[in-house]
């Protein structure tokens, strides 16, 4: 069976590359075909890559605190592009100054993200979640 394509990258003007490499490694090890767009990735790049590669999920990282601004409108854009079935995850240091993560999670879910992870989240949790979410859609990784 062909591997499932997953697009990953660090959004906005964020250049934190370490987490990006860990995600690349972990998801590849877990059997996914990872299309890694690297750092400083725009919304449009995520969208274009997902269309061409027929990706089933987009995993966005953001570490520098401007994630909210960078991700604004992203869920809607993907819907417009016909990618409403693509799972959209985000993780990292998403906002500055809000300590209550449940609020952050609520905010990003309202922006169209399916899963939101706090700083220090276990990567294996993300992999498990993705497998389960795909299974729910009838896709087996």
């Amino acid at each position: 069976m062909e591997k499932i394509n997953v697009v990953i990258g660090v959004i906005g003007a964020d250049v934190h590359a370490v987490g990006n490499r860990i995600i690349d490694y972990a998801f590849s090890q877990a059997g996914f075909n990872v299309i890694n767009l690297g750092v400083m990735v725009s919304q449009k790049e995520f969208m274009d890559a997902a269309i061409e590669t027929n990706a089933k999920a987009i995993i966005v990282s953001s570490l520098y605190g401007h994630g909210e601004l960078d991700c604004r409108g992203m869920g809607d854009m993907l819907k417009e592009a016909g990618l409403e079935d693509v799972l959209l995850y985000i993780g990292g240091n998403l906002v500055v100054g809000k300590s209550d993560f449940s609020e952050v999670e609520k905010l990003f879910k309202s922006m169209g993200f399916n899963r939101v992870y706090p700083p220090g989240a276990d990567i294996n949790q993300g992999i498990e979640d993705l497998k389960n979410d795909l299974k729910e859609k009838g896709i087996y990784a």
Partner: peptide, 9 residues
Amino acid sequence: SGGTDGGNT
């Protein structure tokens, strides 16, 4: 053309 190998068909 269109789609990467294993991508959009």
